[in-house]
Write a protein that binds this DNA or RNA. Structure first.
Lengths: 349, 349
DNA sequence: TTGAAAGCGATACCAA
DNA sequence: TTGGTATCGCTTTCAA
């Protein structure tokens, strides 16, 4: 690596502080680290020297000996758009950052937006820049978990890990959530219920689809693959999927979308197609995010406690960083259906 | 700092690589750093050892000697909401990240959401975790620039720095942009033109307001402080300001808002008040973001090349990191008015 | 081309 | 309570 000659940082070292305060480096270090084994007078002397010189501990040196960096990375591997358009992430971050803050850990956000960048990010994380990694929205083929595991970097996922990967995680019961949504549609008297599923390589996508199928089967409704369409977790993805579904089965009277954003896309397509919601078609989303209350009609949606997921994940990660036991822990939170205007009992036929 | 006993990282060191390859640490280091002064055979041996052992260089150790970390921080100090709701930031990041990527620098995003967190973040940055800092949306009283300057950490701002701070920056000509907007309204035959200004402690806010005043004066229109209202750069801020303005002067026929989001808020208030846009009132926003084309009617807006700002800022920062000359550089980009449906020539009176 | 060895700045052990 | 010093993992002269 490059590194032009001697371009040392501003350069106040502990050595200089010690010299100025007339003590040894060891003692100065004790003051910096708030050790109780320092006399009051000396503590004052050193503190003044620190202030006079504007001393700031060099993290690299400290990290080298302690093995700790005092920072945690949150990694969001998404094609850039989603991080900012999906309200999921800010809520997750809000939940997590509170926990890290309380532990005086600096949260740094990494958002590789291409395979190449993801590669570099992996290097950054395994090189010891952070004490632990929190990641959300993982795709099935992402090599990151294995790489971090090998490098012994603590990792916690938000969302169930893909098959074959064992790692700590926090998730909501997506399967049960999806079932509740479909059961709600059935209770509304819907008989031709389709689903707009998330990407087939993401656990959330898979689980919500599984829940949908279970509920359909249990309700004794015929299973029909033409009632299932996949899409990205975006408004556009939802719209495109809805259009395909309508083309395949014109008699659809219920829609379960795997996210509110997708449901919003579906609503716009239904409106264009002249279907009234909820009179002709009832729609249920997932997330119960702000989006749910800004569509027209407002969305019935499966609520998931996102801030809480962030908190729990952060807590799990902090534990893992502290004890380094490599134990796998997981937390699953419950969901609930929040009813709004987009779903209603079918008017008597 | 804590640091439980010997909890060393996974622990493949260069020493171990050297041993396995049967060479000295120095030679192994040369291979890792792609030095040309290594024989082909030895290079192969060492590379195999690296692969076998899964060696990853320890960043802390390397940083300690080179003074470089290979990463750059982008700091957004906002009460959390704005980062995700304002399309400005994703665009800025997209522009900047391309440049950093090309230089193999890892971009880390820091978003302190309270004074306390901002304090910690300052510590993180001055402790040598990153080679340089890019920051946007700086408020006048933010102590960060001074702190970084003292610690000799390269810094580039997006947006003109507050008075009294000298630092490199990239900005658009906000003053001229605002003038063009107002001139456009005047050309539309508007005579009672108000402005929804940004926060008075932010340079963008100040500059756009100044441009507004200049244009009003030049057009020979009476200056009236009741035609100026301040607000946050949010939809709510814009709505509240518009409501106050209408209450103070019912005869308003032109609105210049300092951001599209604010203009969107203004549009909703105007609609509620029964004012037709653009027939009764013409509205011009600032940013020419996606928001501008999703309002109804679509917004006439001042375009600013945000991706380009991000690129230029990143370029400036990379330069500063490389030569460490502490020279202050700045780049100012031009704006242009993009006409849409929210502004139109007044129908003959 | 290769190796030996001197740091980089801080922590933590062992004596005093 | 204090100081001396080995050590962390790597880069980089300086000799060989």
């Amino acid at each position: 690596m490059v590194g032009s000659k001697r371009d040392r940082r501003s350069g106040v070292t502990l050595e200089m502080v010690a010299l100025r305060a007339g003590v040894s480096r060891a003692t100065a270090s004790r003051v910096v680290n708030c050790s109780p084994r320092v006399s009051a007078q000396i503590r004052l002397d050193v503190e003044r020297a620190i202030a006079d010189l504007g001393y700031v501990p060099n993290r690299a040196a400290r990290t080298l000996v302690t093995g700790r960096t005092g920072s945690i990375a949150v990694v969001i591997t998404e094609p850039s758009g989603r991080l900012f358009s999906d309200p999921f992430f800010p809520r997750l971050l809000r939940g997590a950052s509170g926990v890290f803050s309380a532990r005086d850990l600096q949260l740094v956000l990494l958002m590789p937006s291409s395979r190449e960048e993801a590669e570099r990010t992996g290097g950054y994380l395994t090189a010891g820049h952070v004490d632990g990694v929190l990641t959300a929205s993982l795709h099935g083929n992402d090599p990151l978990p294995a790489r971090l595991f090998k490098a012994d970097v603590p990792l916690v996922l938000v969302g169930r890990p893909p098959r074959g990967i064992s790692v700590s995680y926090v998730d909501v019961d997506n399967r049960q959530g999806a079932r509740s949504a479909v059961e709600h549609l059935v209770a509304c008297g819907r008989r031709v219920i389709c689903t707009i599923a998330g990407p087939a390589d993401m656990a959330v996508g898979i689980d919500r689809l599984a829940g949908y199928r279970e509920a359909i089967a249990e309700a004794g409704l015929p299973v029909d693959r033409r009632l299932e369409a996949y899409g990205e977790f975006t408004q556009e993805g939802g719209a495109a999927a809805m259009a395909r579904l309508l083309a395949a089965r014109a008699d659809i009277d219920g829609v379960f979308a795997a996210s509110d954003l997708m449901a919003a896309g579906a609503l716009s397509v239904l409106a264009e197609a002249g279907r009234r919601v909820p009179a002709d078609v009832s729609v249920v989303g997932f997330d119960d995010s702000l989006v749910a209350t800004s569509t027209s009609p407002q969305l019935t949606s499966v609520n998931q406690p996102i801030e809480e997921m962030g908190q729990e994940a952060a807590r799990l990660l902090v534990e893992a960083v502290d004890d380094r036991s490599r134990a796998i822990r997981s937390v699953t939170l419950a969901t609930s259906v929040v009813e709004r205007a987009s779903s209603a009992r079918r008017s008597s036929p």
